[in-house]
C-alpha cells in the first residue's frame, strides 16, 4: 500500500534522462532540453531512461551498450531515430522506438510504466565478467605475481611516468567519450591523465553512419539555430541550467534578434566569458573569444571549419581535464555538428 503510493509519486516526478547522441543528430536535442517533464542528467548513474538518439553503427553501438548497462534499475531505453532499419546494437534491441519529431511523451510514458511496475527493467546486455580474470589467481588472488603484477579487480596497476610538474607519478590511460556531456557527436578522446592533468591526448571521430537526419534546422536560420544549440550545450556544461534552457527554447525556430541579444546580455553577466578566458588558445583565439563571437547576433552565419583534431589534441596536453572539456566544446570540430549546418545551408 505504502509502496504503491511511493511508486505513484515517483511516476509523476520529472524523468531523469541520459541522452546518448549518435550520428545524424547534430548538437544537444533541444526538444529534450527545455521540457519541464524531463531532467537531463550528465551521468547514466542518475538516469532512469536512456534516450539513444540517431544512428549507432560499429564502435558507437559498443559504447551505447556500455552506457546502457550503467543505468541503475529500474531502467528503460528509448531509441529515437529517423532510420529504424539502421544498425541496432544489443542495448537497443528491445528498446521502444520513436520516430516522431517529439519523443518527450514516449519518455514520460516509459518512465511511468517502469515506476508502476507495468514493464520490466531492461536486462544487462554485456557479460557479467571483470575486464580480466583475477579471482583465485596469484598469491593474493590479484591475478598475478609480485607487487605490481596481476590485475586486481580485473585491471592492471597504473605505471609511473614523468609529468608536467616535474614529478613521476602514476599515469591513468583512459578512453573518454563519445557520450560525455559537451562532446561533439562521435568524438572519442584517448587520454593519459595524471590526477586531472592531461599528459597525452589523441582525438578520434567514430563512424557516424549516413542516412536521414533527426535534426531539422530551418534552412534560412540554420546558422543562428546551430549557434544557439551550441550555446545551450556550453551553458549546460558550465552549470548554467536556466540559461541553457533559455537558449534551447530559442533554438527551436528562427530566433528573433531581440531575444538573442537579451540572451547574450545574460550570458555576459553570468561570468562565463571570464571563466573561459585564456583557455584553449589556438591561432591567438581563446574559448572566451569563441563564445563572444557566437553571442553576437549580427555576426555572419556560416562558421569556418574548426581546427584539425591534431591541433586540438596538442592544446589539450598540460591542461586540467575541466579546461580540456571546455576547449573541446568551444570548437565546431569536424564531426556531425558541423555537417548539420552545411546541410542546412545547402
Amino acid at each position: 500500500m505504502a509502496v504503491a503510493a511511493v511508486r505513484r509519486l515517483a511516476a509523476t516526478a520529472p524523468v531523469p534522462v541520459f541522452v546518448a547522441r549518435g550520428g545524424g543528430t547534430g548538437l544537444l536535442p533541444v526538444e529534450l532540453a527545455f521540457d519541464a517533464r524531463l531532467r537531463l542528467v550528465v551521468s547514466p548513474r542518475h538516469a532512469t531512461v536512456l534516450v539513444a538518439a540517431g544512428r549507432f553503427p560499429g564502435p558507437l553501438g559498443v559504447a551505447v551498450d556500455r552506457v546502457h548497462d550503467q543505468l541503475p534499475a529500474p531502467r528503460g531505453t528509448l531509441w529515437w531515430t529517423a532510420d529504424v532499419d539502421g544498425d541496432r546494437p544489443a542495448a537497443l534491441r528491445d528498446a521502444s522506438v520513436v520516430t516522431d519529431a517529439d519523443p518527450v511523451g514516449s519518455v514520460v510514458a516509459l518512465h511511468r510504466d517502469l515506476c508502476l511496475g507495468r514493464i520490466r527493467s531492461d536486462a544487462a546486455v554485456l557479460a557479467d565478467d571483470p575486464p580480466n580474470r583475477f579471482e583465485g589467481r596469484g598469491d593474493h588472488g590479484q591475478g598475478g605475481e609480485g607487487m605490481m603484477g596481476g590485475v586486481p579487480w580485473g585491471r592492471p596497476m597504473a605505471m609511473t611516468g614523468d609529468d608536467r610538474d616535474g614529478l613521476a607519478l602514476d599515469r591513468l590511460p583512459v578512453v573518454l567519450g563519445p557520450f560525455l556531456p559537451g562532446f561533439p557527436n562521435g568524438l572519442r578522446v584517448h587520454a593519459v591523465l595524471q590526477g586531472d592533468v592531461v599528459q597525452e591526448a589523441k582525438l578520434e571521430v567514430l563512424d557516424l553512419g549516413s542516412g536521414p537526419r533527426l535534426d531539422r534546422l530551418d534552412p534560412a536560420a540554420g546558422g543562428a539555430q546551430h549557434d544557439l544549440r551550441w550555446l545551450a550545450e556550453a551553458l549546460r556544461l558550465a552549470g548554467l541550467g536556466a540559461l541553457a534552457v533559455r537558449a534551447a527554447r530559442l533554438a527551436r525556430a528562427a530566433p528573433a534578434p531581440a531575444s538573442r541579444a537579451a540572451l547574450a546580455r545574460l550570458v555576459r553577466r553570468s561570468g562565463l566569458p571570464a571563466a573561459w578566458s585564456g583557455v584553449g588558445v589556438i591561432d591567438g583565439e581563446d574559448a572566451r573569444a569563441r563564445l563572444v563571437r557566437r553571442l553576437d547576433p549580427s555576426a555572419p552565419e556560416g562558421r569556418s571549419p574548426g581546427p584539425s583534431l591534431e591541433r586540438v589534441a596538442e592544446v589539450l596536453v598540460g591542461q586540467d581535464w575541466s579546461d580540456a572539456v571546455v576547449t573541446i566544446c568551444s570548437f565546431d570540430l569536424p564531426t556531425d555538428r558541423a555537417e548539420a549546418v552545411i546541410e542546412a545551408q545547402a
Partner: peptide, 23 residues
C-alpha cells in the same frame, strides 16, 4: 554488477584502475 560498476567515461573504458598516486 561488472558492467554496472565500471566507471562512467561516456562509453569509453579505463585501461588501468584508478588506484593511482597523483599530485
Amino acid at each position: 554488477l561488472w558492467p554496472f560498476r565500471a566507471p562512467f567515461l561516456g562509453g569509453g573504458i579505463s585501461e588501468t584502475h584508478a588506484w593511482s598516486r597523483f599530485h
